[in-house]
Simulated assay, not measured.
Amino acid sequence: MSKLLVKAKDGGGRVAHVTPQSAGWGYVGFDLHRLTPGETVAESSGSREVCLVFVSGKGRVHAGGQDLGVLGERMSPFEGKPWSVYVPQDTEWSVEAGTDLELAVCSAPGLGGGLPVRVIAPKDLHEELRGKGTNTRYVTNILPEGEPADSLLVVEVITPGGHTSSYPPHKHDQDNLPAESYLEETYYHRLNPPQGFAFQRVYTDDRSLDETMAVEDGDVVMVPKGYHPCAACHGYDLWYLNVMAGPKRTWKFHNATEHEWLLKA
């Protein structure tokens, strides 16, 4: 199995866990919690900022001494936009599940920005249709660079069955602004129906890194560098949640030169 692929554990609780230490990088962290009604996850953000994303289900959120109420709406990531909560560094937070709940905890270094806790509601999110033909996909920016945060960028994407995504292949592994930014990235994958699979390739120009993975429902793929396109198989829609962070909070990418013609076709 590829060293870039993290398989979610069976059962409940924290079923996926990626840290800078486990990934061998410096910025991105990702946890996935599966809770049943009445179960609670509670943590402190410490030196990191956090974005809580309700992948599916509902729960009561407390953060920074505030009761934010019961959040969550969709019961599947393929049904509408998510509820999310931004939690700054050095802040206690907790979520008590009101239904079966899948909660993503996205994290990156806090930079002392002094930002407040805030709820990010579905009505505040814009869904963007990107690409054309069999490269069409649907992008929802949860925490884009135009919204306040210290390091985090968070986005979710639905790729219909038979379509490609993160394509033509692009990368963001050079701290070379304004041409390209260095951003580590995780992909948390879900499939509909869940017994399906998709493919993701992570590779560099010199092929010193070249991994192609069959991703199943619940898998996490780590992208430390290189290009990282995805392909959804016929009959199975692919949803994924991206978490990105690096030394500068901006998404500037470089397309694979040999495939740029696709943007003009």
Rank of each mutant, 00 (worst) to 15 (best):
256 A>S: 05
133 G>E: 11
40 T>V: 14
144 P>C: 09
180 E>I: 06
150 D>K: 00
145 E>V: 08
241 L>N: 08
137 R>V: 06
149 A>W: 00
232 A>K: 09
180 E>C: 13
118 R>S: 14
27 Y>N: 04
170 H>M: 12
66 Q>G: 01
170 H>K: 12
52 L>D: 05
176 N>E: 13
181 S>M: 04
85 V>H: 13
87 V>D: 11
162 G>Q: 09
136 T>P: 02
75 M>L: 11
35 L>A: 09
236 Y>A: 12
5 L>G: 09
193 P>E: 12
70 V>F: 03
114 G>W: 05
177 L>E: 14
48 R>F: 03
38 G>M: 11
172 H>Y: 13
41 V>M: 07
126 H>G: 03
171 K>D: 08
198 A>Y: 05
215 V>I: 14
41 V>D: 06
30 F>G: 04
100 D>T: 10
109 P>E: 04
56 S>L: 10
119 V>M: 06
252 K>I: 02
206 D>I: 02
46 G>L: 01
47 S>K: 14
169 P>A: 15
33 H>C: 05
58 K>Y: 02
259 H>G: 01
175 D>F: 12
253 F>N: 08
153 L>W: 01
185 E>H: 06
102 E>L: 07
32 L>F: 04
254 H>F: 00
56 S>T: 06
8 A>H: 13
56 S>Y: 05
236 Y>V: 15
192 N>R: 15
21 Q>P: 00
183 L>G: 07
236 Y>P: 03
237 D>V: 04
207 R>A: 09
259 H>A: 09
62 H>L: 12
195 Q>M: 10
200 Q>W: 04
117 V>H: 04
83 W>F: 15
251 W>A: 07
163 H>E: 05
152 L>S: 01
116 P>N: 11
178 P>Y: 07
162 G>R: 09
183 L>Q: 15
217 D>L: 02
195 Q>N: 14
134 T>F: 13
237 D>W: 01
225 K>T: 00
137 R>P: 05
102 E>W: 01
72 G>Q: 03
